[in-house]
């Protein structure tokens, strides 16, 4: 996270105003995305997404657990992001903690819905095995290997691809007794593919001057006055919204940004789906 001089900032602002960014992209253009699945063999599902020089890995592990008393018919999902010092020396020890927490909270908000579990991008009721007794606990771990801006979008894309790669083992319930822990038999052979049609992607719009850009590099991010991360699913519904940055925004500007994010996200979903299909085809 190097600082930028006034002259460079002026140049970046000029580029964004003239719709020609430092690497030649237009304002609403993403960097090239490359996707790999199955990078962590011992996890249930995993994916590695490269967005320009930003490199993230998402891994998903499913373990058996007890559902919470408040929501006995839903499974549990927890999202945790770690910025490793291999990305930048300043992430050593507690240095990356603030960034990791920010990212974890933003991802939880966008993918998991409210505290009641309603409206979550991931269908939690598909994770239940025995109501009130046994459910699947999904642990989603994100790892940042290399950081060049726009970590949130890359992590959300990685989680979406990892979920499509995830196989939850088939469980058959034995023993219908009414005691605490019914016996379950976890199959080693059969797997259920996770349903990812409802999983949203996140598009971060960074406001620089009077214009918004998509997929900011770390230099452009240092320039931002404010940024909005919008999570949109395939049906065009907004699943979560996070505002970053200190500057205040006019409400009409916020609505405009949301509609722009909506249209951009449909393109992103299409690109991701084709990448997922290509990755799965190459695996077979």
């Amino acid at each position: 996270m190097v600082g930028l001089s006034e002259g460079e900032k002026h140049f970046i602002r000029g580029g964004i105003a003239q719709d020609l960014r430092s690497d030649g992209r237009k304002r609403l253009q993403f960097r090239s995305i490359s996707v790999e699945t199955g990078v962590i063999p011992q996890a249930n599902g995993s994916a590695r997404v490269r967005l320009g020089a930003t490199d993230v890995i998402a891994s998903i592990k499913a373990e058996l657990g007890k559902p919470s008393i408040l929501r006995p018919d839903k499974g549990k999902v927890s999202i945790f992001v770690d910025c490793s010092p291999t990305a930048a020396p300043m992430f050593e020890g507690r240095g990356g903690e603030e960034l990791s927490n920010d990212l974890s909270v933003a991802l939880q908000r966008c993918l998991l819905g409210g505290t009641s579990g309603a409206g979550a991008g991931i269908d939690l009721s598909s994770l239940i095995i025995v109501d009130g007794k046994v459910c699947w606990d999904l642990y989603i771990d994100g790892l940042v290997i290399s950081s060049d801006g726009n970590l949130l979008d890359a992590l959300a894309a990685a989680i979406k691809v990892a979920l499509s790669n995830t196989g939850i083992p088939k469980v058959s319930v034995l023993g219908a007794s009414s005691d605490e822990q019914p016996d379950v038999d976890v199959s080693d052979e059969e797997f259920l593919q996770f349903d990812t049609s409802g999983v949203p992607v996140i598009v971060t719009l960074t406001k620089v001057g009077r214009h918004y850009i998509v997929d900011a590099t770390s230099e452009e991010e240092s320039q931002m006055s404010s940024a909005i991360s919008v999570s949109v699913n395939r049906r065009g519904q907004i699943c979560g919204l996070t505002k970053r940055g200190g500057a205040g925004l006019d409400p009409s500007v916020v609505l405009d940004m949301i509609s722009v994010a909506n249209s951009v996200s449909q393109q992103l979903i299409t690109v991701l789906d084709s990448e997922i299909a290509a990755a799965e085809a190459s695996e077979e």
């Binding site: 199955g38 063999p41 011992q42 996890a43 249930n44 599902g45 995993s46 592990k61 373990e63 058996l64 995830t166 196989g167 083992p169 822990q181 016996d183 379950v184 038999d185 976890v186 080693d188 797997f191």
Partner: peptide
């Protein structure tokens, strides 16, 4: 596909 680690069901 993913391999199953050893710790799955509660009575492991």
């Amino acid at each position: 596909m993913a391999t199953t680690p050893m710790t799955y069901s509660p009575s492991q």
